[in-house]
């Protein structure tokens, strides 16, 4: 089964995934109308800054076992038996933040959401775009990512590709770097900026 794979070394911090995610989880599903919607559509993937201000797309790992699921006081968090996605039932959620206290990646947010009862603040996180996937589409964040930091592929294949990339980059006379030269330069500049 395909899944979203994160390649943090390729993230340029453009936040296009956040925009795409917010739009995908809006009522209208269109950027321009989504801007006017209330509650304001919000992303479920969060681009943060690493130690030298490099980008980092942080999203739910759908852990198994999932600490948030085990910690949920209201029994609102569950795993979809078919897709393996960890989901939050907005009708059962009591906004107690026990899941935020349990999540080792810090990916859960609390706000009103188009899928929640009107006016109710609930816990919100990545749902793997299960609805888009059911329609044959890829998760919105992977579709928007142009630097290859978020891909939608078979995990085995991603691992093989990565192993080959690393192997090539350490071979003698290697001409291809593990990340494209432009990205490597960007990261080098960011590191240099910090040391200045």
């Amino acid at each position: 089964m395909k899944q979203v794979v994160v390649h943090p070394e390729r993230c340029v911090g453009c936040m296009q995934c956040m925009v795409a995610c917010a739009v995908a989880h809006s009522r209208s599903g269109q950027l321009y109308t989504a801007l006017a919607e209330r509650p304001r559509p919000r992303p479920r993937v969060h681009v943060g800054a690493g130690l030298y201000n490099e980008g980092f797309p942080n999203r739910c790992r759908h852990c198994d076992p999932a600490p948030c699921l085990l910690a949920c006081l209201a029994g609102a968090i569950f795993r979809d038996a078919h897709t393996g996605t960890v989901l939050i039932d907005p009708d059962k959620c009591i906004n107690c933040a026990s899941c935020a206290m349990a999540c080792p990646y810090g990916v859960i947010r609390f706000h009103e959401d188009p899928v929640a009862p009107p006016g109710k603040t609930v816990a919100v996180k990545c749902d793997n775009c299960d609805q888009r996937v059911a329609q044959g589409l890829a998760p919105a964040c992977t579709e928007a990512c142009k630097s290859g930091a978020l891909t939608y592929e078979e995990m085995d294949e991603a691992m093989r590709r990565k192993t080959a990339e690393v192997a090539r980059s350490v071979s003698t006379g290697a001409e291809t770097a593990a990340v494209p030269p432009a990205l490597a330069l960007l990261m080098a500049v960011k590191k240099a900026e910090l040391s200045l």
Binding site: L51, A97, A100, M101, A102, P104, Y105, G106, I108, R109
Partner: peptide, 24 residues
Amino acid sequence: AVEQGGVLLSLIRNRAPLAIPPER
């Protein structure tokens, strides 16, 4: 702004020494 609390909890639970300045 308690969203990153779980990250801190797992650090405490794992009893791992910090590799970055704690102020971070």
